[in-house]
Design a protein around this nucleic acid. Structure first.
Length: 466
RNA sequence: UCCCCAGUAGCUCAGUUGGUUAGAGCGGUGGACUGUUAAUCCAUGUGUCGUUGGUUCGAAUCCAACCUGGGGAGCCA
């Protein structure tokens, strides 16, 4: 028995007349009174399902095959044949159809062979992988992840597995999820009544990481070109289509690099992974372009074909002030840009991803490198139309005296950063990096509007089912 | 967390300016037809009208709170 994946059968890897067995799930069944049934079977190996043609001479035709419904699992053995019908080059002339698992009540199987809303599918996170759209998202997501690793590997970057648990509650941004083994009903207390974290698993307070950046900087200052690719956690009460409490982030960090090196790296990386998706997942991208977002393919091609627009924060402020558009929030040098401002720049002014650079120091994180003008830092955001900030990065302050000054200005506890400061005390080097939100990337590529639909099991405020 | 909108059949939605028996398409089921392909045609069932409370002779319809979802904002990736 030759087991075959559907991708290989449809892709012509087998000769006409070969007998193969495919295994998967029924998408639809159509009966013909000519004495045959058409069974569309998918196995995830490619976008398309294979059409198996089952004749009524099969011994289980009447009592099993004609009862197959969407979702049943089957093993179909048959000979590879040119399709007599439209819609596919090859099909399987079935010689045996084994039903592996029935759908116990077709009337209540949630995944009907029809269009469902994304919100509805989200309620069935365990069954939505069987849908066209979820399967396509999954394959594109995988393709992007592989392309990211390949891109960095080809450039001599090492993948660093930075820790998921951290005992530093001062990583910079965001609310943290606590990690504890203490009995919450019976907390150990110190003499002054506070929770005694010395009794906790790590002997101190611990949290889930909000970024691998500070840790990965240590490896950049030794192995030169490194990156992280792993899960990240933010306990923020964000209820939007572009935020998750648990998401994946890619954070390259490069020694002896400056902000423009990072901008170039970000541009190269995005173009590389977009090209990979167009090359490797043409089937899924065609589906997205047809059913989800007409621009899904042309948008990627446009990004690949054009140089990214670079813009200084100061110039962006001027553009926004002179564009004649009414904004809800006024624009002035020194204020952080609002979503409406970023959207105008990316969607209307440029019409493609735009790199904004050199933000005012006072609205940015302590570790960003101060520019010579004394008021800006070497930070950048890559803004994508429709998504907003997809990448945030900066050159890191490698000069200890300036770093310490920033820690003091922002009232951050120096002792918490002793190991981070050590990098500046022992053989410091200029270095820079950025963070790319992986789900935002998948959403941008597929055109899927809500980030909760491009991760298998989304976690957000009030939602951690499955 | 804030602002706005929505919650009616398994799904997508229409409807009710408060009043007897609540509607369509799709899906399911039965049949017809067909190398079909989200097939087509005919038939067919289904609803505590989000939850709780209030107003009222009467609420699915009006009001309030809550829950859930969506859009936007903030936080950011």
């Amino acid at each position: 028995m030759t087991i075959a994946v559907i991708k290989d059968v449809l892709g012509g890897k087998f000769a006409l007349g070969d007998t193969v067995t495919v295994r998967g799930w029924v998408r639809t069944r159509r009966d013909s009174k000519a004495g045959i049934s058409f069974i569309n079977v998918h196995d995830g190996s490619c976008f398309d399902a294979i059409q198996a043609v089952a004749p009524n001479t099969l011994e289980n035709y009447n009592h099993e095959i004609t009862r197959l419904t969407t979702g049943c699992s089957v093993m179909v053995t048959g000979t590879v044949a040119e399709s007599a019908g439209q819609g596919q080059a090859f099909e399987l002339q079935a010689t045996a159809v084994e039903v592996v698992g029935w759908v116990e009540d077709p009337d209540t199987y949630p995944m009907a062979p029809k269009r469902h809303s994304m919100e509805y599918l989200r309620e069935f996170a365990h069954l939505r992988p069987r849908t066209n759209i979820s399967g396509a998202v999954t394959r594109v997501r995988h393709c992007l992840a592989q392309a990211v690793h390949r891109f960095f590997h080809e450039r001599g970057f090492y993948w660093i597995s930075t820790p998921i648990i951290t005992t530093s509650d001062a990583e910079g941004a965001g609310e943290l999820f606590r990690v504890s083994t203490l009995d919450m009903m019976n907390l150990p207390r110190t003499d002054d009544g506070k929770v005694d974290y010395k009794e906790d698993f790590f002997g101190k307070e611990a949290f889930l990481t909000v970024s691998g950046q500070l840790n990965v900087e240590t490896y950049a200052c030794a192995l030169s070109n490194v990156y992280t690719f792993g899960p990240t956690f933010r306990a923020e009460n964000s209820n939007t289509s572009r935020h998750l409490a648990e998401f994946w982030m890619i954070e390259p960090e490069v020694a002896f690099a400056d902000l423009d090196d990072m901008a170039a790296l970000a541009e190269d990386m995005l173009k590389y992974v977009f090209q990979a998706v167009l090359n490797e997942r043409a089937d899924d991208m065609a589906f997205f372009a047809e059913r989800v977002d007409k621009e899904a393919i042309s948008r990627l091609q446009h990004v690949i074909d054009n140089k990214f627009v670079h813009m200084d924060y100061t110039d962006a402020i001027e553009i926004l002030q002179k564009c004649g558009k009414e904004f809800s929030y006024p624009v002035a040098w020194g204020v952080d840009l609002q979503s409406e401002h970023e959207r105008y720049l990316a969607e209307e002014h440029v019409g493609a991803p735009v790199i904004l650079k050199n933000y005012p120091r006072d609205i940015k994180a302590f570790y960003m490198r101060q520019n010579d003008d004394g008021k800006t830092v070497a930070a950048m955001d890559v803004l994508a139309p429709g998504i907003g900030e997809i990448i945030g990065g900066s050159a890191r302050e490698e000069r200890l005296d300036l770093l310490d000054q920033r820690l003091e200005d922002m009232k951050l506890p120096k002792e918490e950063y002793s190991w981070y400061r050590d990098l500046r005390r022992y053989g410091t080097v200029p270095h820079a990096g950025f963070g790319l939100g992986f789900e935002r990337l998948v959403a941008y590529v597929t055109g899927v509007q809500n980030i909760r639909d491009v991760i298998p099991f989304p976690r957000s405020p009030n939602n951690a089912d499955f």
